[in-house]
Every structure is written in C-alpha cells, then in structure tokens.
Design a protein around this nucleic acid. Structure first.
Lengths: 340, 340
DNA sequence: CTGTTAGCGCTTTCAC
DNA sequence: GTGAAAGCGCTAACAG
C-alpha cells in the first residue's frame, strides 16, 4: 500500500536491536566511521537493509545544526529563470545531497514574508532569492540568520551578495557576432527602457559597435518585451532604414516578432538580414524559422555558483558583498548563419 | 550581516528565560493553548518578538511526527506543468504552511531514486509525482511509507492514485467550440500518435463531431509536438482540403505553426479559418496573431487536489486507487472569435 | 571496538 | 496556571 503513514517508520533503534548492537554502534556503522569491527558493520548494514531503514534527516539535523536544505525564494512565475537555477543548485552537490524548497511568492511581498518565515523555521542552511527581471529587488534585510544570495536580480542593498548575468557583455557579444558575420548596418529593438537589462544590453551593443568603428542604425527602439512589439518595431524599422542588414533584439520574444515581420516583408534571414535574440528561451528560439541565434545567460551555472556561495558561507567563509556579473555565451543558430 | 550561521539561533529556552517562565509554559503560550494566564502569554509573546524567535520546525517535527513538507518529484524539465502544480500544492494550505521540495530527476531513473531516498529521509508527509507527458509512468512502487499521488502522468500501477487532466473532454470541448462558432469542416493536426494525450484528444474531438452529425475532414495528421510540424501540416492540409474552416491543433506549439502557415497562404483567422490549440501555454498562446483559443488543463487546481489528497491520507483517510480525470476548460481568444 | 550518557529544541503528560 | 520530566531519533563524547 502506498501507506497511510500510520505504521511508525523504522528507527535506528530498530536496526540496532535487529543487529544486536547498541544504537551508538549502529550509528557509527551506518555512517562509515572507522572504529567499528567489519563483521559488526556488515550485520548492521544488513539489518538496515532488511528493514529498509531510512535515517531521519530531521533528527540528524537537530544535532548537526544543519539540514542540507536550501530555500529558493522566487517571484518568477514562469519558471524560466528559476528552474535552471534550481538545477544548478542541485548540481552543486550530488543529486539528493541537498534538497531545495521552492517557494513562489508570486510577486506578493506578504507571501514572500510568509515563505521566508517558513524557510527560517525549517532551518534551511541558506536562501537563494531569484527575481524575475534584472533590476534590483528589495533586500531581505541584514538580519537573516542564514546566508542569502541573490540570483538573477541583484539586491538593492550593496552589502548583499548578488550573482547576475552580465547583460553588457551579452549585448556586446551579440553585436560582435553580427559584425563578424559581415554585418555593418545594425539596429536594436528592445523592451521596456526602464529595465536595467535593456540599458545594459544596449550599452554593450554600442561598445561592440564602437570597437569596430560602427554605430547603431537609427535610435534604439524601446517598448515592451513582447512579440507584438517585435513585429511592429521591425515594420517601422524596415520602412525607415530599408538598408539594415542586422537586428539585435533585446529578448527572444521580440526577436520572434521581428523574424515574422521581416519574412512577411520579403526579406530573407539570415542572407539578407541577420537577427540575434536574447535569453535562449529554447521553446521560442529553437522553433522559429530560422532558429534563433541568441545570448544564453548560463543560469544553471549561476545557480550552481549561488549554491556554492551559500554552502561556503555556512562553512564559515564570509559572504562577499556586491554584485558579481557572470559571463554569458552566444548560442549560434540559423538566424545569423545559414545552414549549408 | 547576512550572518554566517555561527551565532546560535534563539531557542524556546531563550524566550522562556526572558519571559521568566518555564519552557513548557512558553511553548503553550506560543501555540495558543488555553491553559495559560493572559498576562503570562503576553509576556511570552513579547519576549519571542523581541528575540525574533523562530520555532525550529525540525524539533517540532521530530515530536509531532509530521513535517508539513511535501516532495514534488518531477521530470518536467521545462517546468510547464510542474510549476502550476507546485503553486496549487502551496495553495492547498496557506502560504508558508506547507513547503514543497522540488526535485528534478531530469528523466533519469537513478537520479529519481536518489531524490526519493532524500525525500523519505527528510520525512516529507507525502509525495506528488509529476510526469512530463500524459502517458503512464512507472510507479514508485507499493512500499513507499508516505502517501504518493501521481499528477499529470498517471502511474502504471492501477493501485496508485493518479490525477490527470481529461484529454478526451478537452478534445471534445475544442471541437464543440468550433462547431458553436459555425464551423463544420474541421481538421485535426496533432503530435506524436503514440502519446495517450494525442489519442484521447482525438477521441474527444470525434465524439464532439459525431454529436453534431459531423466528421473530421481528412485523416487526423500526426507527427511531432512542434511548431515546424504545425507549419508543414497546415500547408499539406490546405492543399488537400482548401475548404476547411476549422483546425483543432493538438498543442499550442502546433497551433502556432498552423497559424503561421495559414496566414502565409492568405487565409484569415478567425473569419476564414478558426484555430484551437491545446495547453494554454501562455507565452505561446497570448503572443500569436491572433491570440490562441486553447484548452487549459487547470493544473493549479490539479496541484491543489493532489496536495489535499496527500494530506487527507496523512490524516488517516485511505488513499483511493485509480486514475481520476479532472475537468479542463476552454480559454477563448481571437483565433476563433474575432475582436469587435 | 562497543556501549552508556548527554544532549539537539520542542511538545506533552502529569504533578503541584 | 505553571513547571518538572520524559522522549521524538539521532550523533558525539567518553568510559569500559
């Protein structure tokens, strides 16, 4: 039966009894400590196996003072950012070594407080806070008794440690790639201009262009992070600057819209016009026609690093302060380089 | 400082000392038990507040025998299904009442075993297993000592309880809607025909058509759950049956592809041809042109129910067996009904 | 090598 | 009303 929890779980005591040793010896045997006779250890392991003993992590945690759990506090409703980060955090140790409480605050500060209390009450060893945009978010405050790392969105308190993708480098990477594909008349269509991400990606793009002695064609176009805006912007852009040969879009969604309009207006991608997106949101990037070259923030690595920082801090290391920008990478697909 | 965990957390003992009462009284006061004087209670609450006392859930769990945690074991890499289910599970109780360990097995049976062990070791009160397709998945087996509910993908063991969306009803709903929009020449483009989801949605669609004295136009077209297939299929379909006025797509991805081709071939949606998708994957459904009418499986509700079943089982109720199909709903957007 | 003892932080009898 | 004491399951000294 997928049991009804009624039947008391088997404890170390049960194992000890069956193996005819004391509880302490059983504990040592199971934890691979040296000072226990081989024969005894075998008896204990056998007994544990026969009873399918599963050590009680709470009891263990009570005495050890740490739980091997991490809280992931997010407002990323779509899970686009938080899931790779979660996987990275799991990877920081073996599977099942550390477990992650995922809490979705859904953008609600009250709910976030509830979740925070719950996590602290569960004595998580640390907390990773994952925002949904790259703008700073309110710090959880200086009084959290466990290490906190902010991932993707930085904390607004510079004393906190934040790990974020390097949007500037991403913008630069995108444009450099376009240039290396022989493009020289490059325009930029992005999302909400109040977002740090929008500003940084643009700055990076301009850097890359300047380094090649080029400039953006026309003013960068800002509005919202949507496919529809990508469609509209591309139409305006091609009307005003029909001679452009490259578009750097601020997100994959925008890029999708751009691609669609560009095709409809009879331009061919990538021969006539190359397009680069941002985020490597696979469902969008790999299903467009052609597939989208895009900037990937390597969030899994970011999650792994965040978890590592957390555990280093637990092991006594002092948590650094400030925002660290992590390298991003370019994923090249058909929207910039034609298949042969 | 986002502390280094060194400074011992404040315990009930600390609170008791400060409030000048015994530990037992402090416990009662904080847990809102009746048999404690009002003045005393106030003193204790004040002390707890001043020390920002956070009860240790592990210690509490040790004695209570339950932890208020649930394990969510998934292989849904994209998080498309698992996140709504997670939210539903959180909602089953207040935010922060129950916390969810999210474990991603990434389709790897070994990793799943590791995670399962870890969850059991953490004494989760129950486990929800979330598959990534609607086909049956291997049961965790009959020997799990906590209640297990399978969500989205049913277990292959009929003795387990599985909660899945009613794909047949979804297919029927989609077609009924098309019919009620005045469509009579309806075709079906779906994904991998070996998927139960594909079969069930088709069966439902046929039911709906039959009830109206209609039949599918042409054979249902199966291949893969991709946008590209949607594009190709639509082209073939319109070539072979130019007179169709409705297409029921087996997924939103396919529907996106269909929409694109249909537009390119000069047909207008929805006037000339109405399209219904499946999944209500918002990023795809709301950004298409026009936005996609689609079937929503109401996964959040599914998650809430799964969590409720788990906790009922903990409270002694016997977990039912078998697969329960939960109602789905239609989300109507512009691909079937034109905006005025 | 093995067992006894003392907690980890909390809830819960059960006396006072 | 309140507090002393037992114990949840486990690990870590410390004796033997």
């Amino acid at each position: 039966m997928s049991g009804n929890g009624a039947n008391r779980a088997v404890t170390l005591g049960d194992v000890a009894k069956r193996a005819q040793v004391s509880i302490a010896t059983a504990s040592k045997a199971l934890n691979g400590r040296e000072d226990v006779a081989d024969a005894t250890r075998r008896r204990v392991l056998l007994a544990a196996d026969e009873l399918s003993f599963t050590p009680n992590a709470m009891a263990r945690g009570l005495v050890a003072g740490r739980t091997g759990t991490v809280g992931l506090l997010t407002s990323d409703l779509e899970g686009r950012f938080v899931l790779p980060i979660l996987m990275g955090a799991e990877d920081a140790f073996g599977a099942g070594q550390v477990n992650v409480f995922l809490c979705d605050a859904r953008g609600d500060a009250i709910r976030e407080q509830h979740h925070l209390r719950a996590l602290l009450s569960r004595r998580v060893d640390g907390i990773i806070v994952v925002g949904r945009q790259t703008d700073p978010r309110p710090s959880l405050g200086p009084d959290i008794p466990v290490p906190v790392v902010y991932a993707y969105s930085p904390s607004d308190d510079p004393r906190d440690l934040s790990l974020v993708p390097d949007n500037r480098a991403g913008g630069r990477l995108a444009v450099e790639h376009l240039i290396s594909c022989g493009r020289t008349r490059i325009a930029h269509v992005s999302g909400d201009p109040t977002y740090a991400a929008a500003k940084d990606r643009l700055a990076g793009a301009r850097e890359g262009l300047a380094a090649a002695g080029l400039e953006l064609v026309g003013e960068p176009m800002f509005s919202e992070w949507s496919e529809n805006w990508g469609r509209d912007a591309a139409a305006m852009l091609l009307a005003r600057h029909p001679d452009i040969d490259g578009i750097f879009a601020g997100s994959d969604q925008i890029a999708r819209g751009v691609l669609e309009t560009v095709r409809e207006l009879g331009r061919t991608v990538p021969d006539d016009l190359a397009v680069v997106g941002y985020d490597n949101w696979e469902i969008l990037a790999t299903n467009s026609r052609p597939a989208l070259t895009t900037v990937d923030a390597n969030l899994q690595r970011l999650g792994r690093l965040a978890a590592q920082r957390v555990f280093e801090a637990i092991d006594g290391a002092r948590l650094e302060s400030g925002t660290t920008e992590l390298p991003v990478r370019l994923i090249i697909r058909g929207s910039t380089i034609a298949r042969r």
